[in-house]
Write a protein that binds this DNA or RNA. Sequence first.
DNA 1: ATAAATTATTAGGTTTACCTAAATTTTTAT
DNA 2: ATAAAAATTTAGGTAAACCTAATAATTTAT
Lengths: 226, 226
Amino acid sequence: MYIYILFEIMFTQSEENYLKAIFHLQQEVEGGVSTSGLSEKLKTKAASVTEMLKRLAGKKLVDYQKYYGVQLTDKGMQHALLIVRKHRLWEYFLVECLNFNWDEVHEVAEQLEHIRSPKLVEELDLFLGRPQYDPHGDPIPDTNGKLPKSPNKRLSQLQKGERGICKGFNDTSSSFLQFLAKQEIGLGTNLEVLNIESFDESMTVLIDKKEIPLSKTATDNIYVED
Amino acid sequence: MYIYILFEIMFTQSEENYLKAIFHLQQEVEGGVSTSGLSEKLKTKAASVTEMLKRLAGKKLVDYQKYYGVQLTDKGMQHALLIVRKHRLWEYFLVECLNFNWDEVHEVAEQLEHIRSPKLVEELDLFLGRPQYDPHGDPIPDTNGKLPKSPNKRLSQLQKGERGICKGFNDTSSSFLQFLAKQEIGLGTNLEVLNIESFDESMTVLIDKKEIPLSKTATDNIYVED
DNA sequence: ATAAATTATTAGGTTTACCTAAATTTTTAT
DNA sequence: ATAAAAATTTAGGTAAACCTAATAATTTAT
Ligand SMILES: [Mn+2]
Ligand SMILES: [Mn+2]
Ligand SMILES: [Mn+2]
Ligand SMILES: [Mn+2]
């Protein structure tokens, strides 16, 4: 019985990476997640993705319709949320305890998220003081997979003259995070929209008395609370 | 150039497990480490070991003589020491920070030791206060692979009437560690040899006013400082 | 409605890391 | 010294997770 449960819960690193990628892509577009989307996100070829999707479907982790993409089953969602939980808890640990910068944590968390030990996850959560958000402002699922509500207004959605507090980022690539650091934009940063160019939707934003120009691409990837 | 260095340093989990196993077996017996010894330690079949040894030899991590076992090269030793360092630092972390018992840490450390990130190791070491010994009393190699001198007298080497302080354990199997916990023997435990049976070399030891009988097998696996 | 372009799947290969069974070498016992 | 036993290696196979090239289905554009 115990063995049975272990088998049910054991997935390979690769399978877990796919589950997480599907989870993230699922939030961006509705309907099935495409083979090419996964292929791009995971930097593997489409043929490899197709193969893995068939395997995941066999394990009842996804519903897979040939040519029409995949969606996580409840079981798949549950495990994806565990991986996300672990990823974000470790990121928090790296920044809070080990002097990592927020743009250095991703690669290591990508490995640590696969460490298998229920006790480890729960104790780490406790040790860190049950944080709600990771260093990028992303919500950390609790033991049951429940997400605290995420800050979900984008900076690009603010009107001229509105103010907001930076609560998170969508793109967490190293280059974007380094760009943000250079502009001195971080979690908790206060900002005010001074102007919006109508032709390219770029903004001029007031941060700490400095006027910072930001492209639509940038403002789309910054979450704010107003 | 940078890529080249990365390739040189990247080994698979399996390769790392072999290197560590060879390292441990090398300390127990002199001469080459045998295929069967590795097979037993790693719970794989001898044929699999032979195959891996050829691969490791190809990567200059071991000197391998068909039919006569292997020994780590300098390069292999260096990497084995890094894995041991990581394993023991993580064990220390689990016990000191995450409320693990010393007999619960091994399995998780077995996974964590493979996380690749030079910064992580050094920062973890710093965060933990540069510990010298892991929760089992085993020495933690420093950044350069240097080991602090290990407590190396076995309880079985003490004479009748001698006293000692428990400094470490050789066998770190769950069953042995649980046995020790039951007898309330741990790091720092004071003990006195009350009697040694000549026929089987078993001992009666005084610990905290209780008389505890210990087999030769047990006393061989307990390190003491006198 | 067709053709072209795009996207996805299948077919066939590779490498790693296991396995079993058979063959070979070394060690031990007579 | 030879034979039996034990240890090791080789041969041949499997599954995971990738790949390229060829084929097929879907979507888009004319
Ligand atoms: Mn990962
Ligand atoms: Mn994050
Ligand atoms: Mn390991
Ligand atoms: Mn240990």
